[in-house]
Nucleic acid binder design. Structure first.
Length: 274
DNA sequence: CGGCAAACCTGCGAGC
DNA sequence: TGCTCGCAGGTTTGCC
């Protein structure tokens, strides 16, 4: 999926098209998402008017009137696109079509179906199970290396695993964890407990920088991810290490190494990262 | 509690 | 050309 920059790009992309519009029809073509859509999903949101769109971690929150919010997670392969004509009936991974007023269609596509949608009372959102254990937002000004240090210094796990743990800090997935550790010059397999305060300061700055730069580029497009407009993001062209096994480090020309951590590929430079 | 593997799915590219 | 294998932006669960 989409990590934080892709989710943020989706939110910014859909907001101007759906804000202040009314949901006039909901077509559930396949309710079998990671969390199955309830029978009454369509009935519960039809007729509502969209007020605001926000993001928490990698979750998209579409706040409507009547104290109702639609929560969307894109999993690994999900996308949300805006169409101004009825979508084709043949796209077998277009699982939910939300038709809004003024000929606007919000299409939820997710080939792997690791994502989900849920309807919640807006005032209950903080108690939504997926939200209760989320850590701080890395792009908040208040989030610093000190917060990161406090979140990870007691963990025995590798620093890369620690920063991908959504309880430490939200929004950092496999790509941006690799890229941030490269920018900070930290070896991904170091125990989190051994990372010094100056290093967490560098790492927090690197996380902020890589996430903000990626947002500025419209996110990264590898396989399925597209922006709400259907365009690709282009931050993938700025990767230093992710997906670059065997290619040369932009700093020192050492071939980029790959290791496996908790079942995920980690790319790094053995010379620049200690 | 911590840490890791597996599970949930489909698609695609590499290699034979 | 066509098959099998491995791997893919995430999260949760269950097992030691």
């Amino acid at each position: 999926m989409p990590e934080l920059p892709e989710v943020e790009t989706v939110c910014r992309g859909i907001a101007p098209h759906i804000t202040d519009k009314q949901i006039v029809d909901v077509n559930v073509r396949n309710p079998h998402l990671r969390i199955p859509l309830p029978q009454d999903f369509a009935a519960r949101i039809t007729g509502l008017t969209v007020k605001t769109v926000s993001r928490r971690a990698k979750y998209i929150c579409i706040h409507c009137d009547k104290d109702t919010s639609l929560i969307i997670h894109l999993g690994m392969s999900g996308s949300l696109t805006i169409l101004t004509n009825p979508p084709s009936a043949h796209n077998k991974h277009d699982h939910v079509i939300i038709q809004l007023s003024h000929e606007t269609y919000l299409v939820y596509r997710d080939p792997r179906r690791f994502g989900f949608m849920a309807v919640k009372p807006t005032d209950m959102l903080p108690h939504f199970p997926s939200f209760t254990r989320l850590g701080p937002e890395p792009l908040d000004k208040e989030w610093t290396g000190e917060e990161l240090y406090n979140a990870v210094h007691h963990k025995n796990t590798a620093i890369k695993i620690a920063i991908m743990d959504q309880q430490s800090v939200v929004g950092v997935g496999n790509i941006y964890a690799c890229e941030a550790l490269f920018l900070a010059g930290i070896h991904p397999a170091r125990p989190a407990s051994g990372i010094t305060k100056p290093e967490t300061t560098r790492l927090a700055q690197a996380i902020k920088r890589v996430l903000s730069d990626a947002i500025a580029s419209g996110g990264s497009t590898l396989r399925d991810y597209v922006r709400s407009s259907g365009e690709a993001g282009y931050f993938q062209h700025h990767f230093n290490v992710y997906g670059k096994k065997g290619q040369l480090c932009p700093n020192c020309n050492t071939p980029i190494a790959i290791i496996r951590q908790s079942g995920r590929s980690t790319f790094f430079c053995t010379h620049c990262q200690h």
